[in-house]
């Protein structure tokens, strides 16, 4: 009995950390997240998402997030004569905590249906164990699924394990700032560069994953240097 209590409490602690990292991640990407959501205390968390027996109810932790105005601006391509009012390539996000240990195409299909029925732009699945190989393929090409009518912004998957700590809070991880399409164009113009000439960052890189970088985006990386003060560099996501 005491053994299982201890296990339940450990799991509750883990989920509390994971929940806070997830909220911080959404905030850092530019979604509207309240400060108290990122700093929720363990007791509040356990009260809100625990069952009477002290177990965690993951389904209760699911949430949606709306992009801030600034985020919408960053994700809106510049107007052109052909497209005078371009649509922002971002929208409401759905985040789901899935307790299932065996997640395959069936769960993915349900997730996609939920995204489409709720008109969500993109989704994040936080899972206990890695998805089946087929489901991972489905995630990679999610927007092409459902006969080309999948969620526009795609689906991302995180293992609970990877969100127990927030890697961007590590002192060696410098600040990453996403450039808007316009800022990117200005940067390339100022330095007379082609994007292919920039150093690169893979979208599968843990920090890139944290920020949800997409192929073609450029991030500004600001390091603190003992000799040069602050030092900025740029990376092109591939």
């Amino acid at each position: 009995m005491a053994e299982s209590d201890h296990k339940a409490r450990q799991e509750m602690l883990d989920m509390w950390r994971i929940y806070r990292t997830t909220k911080e991640m959404c905030r850092d990407r530019g979604y509207n997240v309240l400060p108290e959501e990122c700093s929720i205390s363990f007791d509040d968390f356990a009260r809100k998402f625990g069952t009477e027996s002290g177990a965690i109810a993951r389904g209760q932790m699911n949430f949606s997030a709306i992009p801030s105005e600034d985020m919408v601006r960053k994700y809106t391509p510049p107007a052109t004569p052909k497209v005078p009012n371009p649509e922002a390539a971002i929208g409401t996000l759905w985040v789901e905590f899935n307790a299932d240990e065996n997640i395959g195409m069936k769960n993915l299909r349900e997730f996609i249906h939920h995204l489409l029925n709720g008109s969500y732009y993109s989704g994040i699945m936080i899972v206990v164990k890695p998805l089946s190989g087929m489901a991972m393929r489905g995630i990679r090409g999610a927007s092409a699924l459902n006969g080309g009518n999948g969620p526009k912004g795609g689906i991302e998957v995180f293992l609970e394990q990877d969100l127990k700590i927030n890697i961007t809070k590590h002192e060696l991880v410098p600040t990453h700032l996403l450039l808007s399409t316009e800022e990117k164009a200005q940067l390339l113009k100022r330095y007379r560069l082609k994007e292919t000439q920039l150093p690169r960052i893979q979208v599968t890189d843990p920090v890139a994953k944290y920020y949800g970088l997409r192929r073609g985006q450029v991030v500004k990386i600001i390091r603190k240097s003992e000799t040069a003060g602050r030092y900025a560099s740029y990376r092109w996501a591939i």
Partner: peptide
């Protein structure tokens, strides 16, 4: 790729 995934959805 998309055809195969959609087929798996259906054949499930």
């Amino acid at each position: 790729e998309a055809d195969i995934l959609d087929a798996v959805f259906e054949l499930l």
